[in-house]
Amino acid sequence: MEVLLKEADIVLNGSRPWDPQIHSNEFWTRLYGQGTLGLGEAYMDGIWDVEDMAEFFNKVLSSKVPEGIRATPNLIWQVVQARVLNMQNIARSRRVADMHYSETEAYKASLDARMTGSCGYWPDGVTNIDQAQEAKLDLVCRKIGVKPGQLVWDIGCGWGAFMGFAAEKYGARCVGVTVSPDQAAYGRERYKHLPIEFRVQDYREFGGKTDHVVSMGMFEHVGHKNYRAYFEKARSVIKDDGLFMMHTIGSQWSTETIEAWLEKYIFPGGVIPSIAQVGRAIDGLFTVIDLHNIGPHYDRTLCAWCENFERNWKKDRTPEEERFYRLWKYYLLCCAGGFRAKVLQVWQFVLSTRGVPDGYVTQR
């Protein structure tokens, strides 16, 4: 392992910001016994530290180091479950709300003023996370051509950032679905003066007709067994001249599960889709009229979230609170490293049921 780390320009207990500091030999027991799950839990327990975690993971993921970490029993069981069971059926989908989106206070400490829980957009002139999320929300509205009075369905609406922006800036009416009662309660109170409706329900339970559909940071929770059902639902509710903007994290590999630590602590049942998987799922349902990769913008977004979190989170912490603090930092910065290493992408698809008769004007 040390040879692989050296090839990745990483030195154990070295002096550079991305060199990890190992505090106990238990680190190796965790790593070799549990793989990446053990690596993350060892960090949560204070067994190792690194000053620049995002760059550490960038170097690890850009190298051959992952090849030196063998498959562990928990990973094998995770893959078997993903293949045999539908880990994201309607009943199991509630786990995401229980384990991830109930951490409202951590998100308030991390996110922008609108509580936008997906990748920001950092064009020239944008210097902070609030501006980056406003730029992203405006980009989405322009991509689907929102007009005053139109109804937009938001699949996985979160705390309502897109719906609030679209209603305020473009005069849209919006209805969003979330499996998190906490998110819906927050959004209903914040946007009670706007034509916005929050529904606590699975996307498969939604009905009606809508002018456009958007979905940001939701498809990663759908699961490979449900990709087709997700797009069929969107196709059944969108009007013939409507557009569907789907924003998702993406991978160059087709997989059926997610990294073990993220699956256990952050995204239960999560899967990062590939272009091939999306293509098969939309076959015969939608035409791709635009595809935009904004993956590098998520590195900057996650680092900005972590800066907010460290600045805003409580400084005096109990041992249990310290473990959560380290969990949250690990989540944000290991993901930032993944985007920096280009093993993760962010795709914005603009989909149409029959193409755009007068031609589509690309928005950037």
Rank of each mutant, 00 (worst) to 15 (best):
V65F: 14
N74M: 12
A82F: 07
K108S: 08
E103F: 15
W48A: 06
Y121W: 13
E51Q: 13
M87P: 03
V84M: 14
G46Q: 08
K108T: 07
T72D: 02
S62F: 04
M115C: 04
S62Q: 08
T116D: 00
R70N: 10
E41D: 09
A91G: 00
G68E: 10
Y121E: 04
L75R: 13
S110G: 04
V96T: 12
D112K: 01
G120C: 13
T127L: 11
E55L: 12
A109D: 13
V80T: 09
L39T: 02
E41T: 08
V96A: 11
R92K: 15
R114W: 07
S93Y: 11
R70E: 13
N74K: 12
D52W: 06
S63I: 03
Y101L: 07
A132D: 01
V65S: 08
T127M: 07
P66C: 10
R92E: 14
I47K: 12
Q78L: 15
V126H: 10
V50M: 09
L75V: 11
M44P: 00
V84G: 04
D52I: 03
T72F: 03
V50Q: 10
S102E: 10
G33R: 03
N74S: 15
P73Q: 08
A97F: 11
V50T: 09
A97D: 09
D49S: 15
A71K: 10
R114P: 01
I129S: 01
V96E: 06
L75Q: 14
L39N: 04
G46A: 08
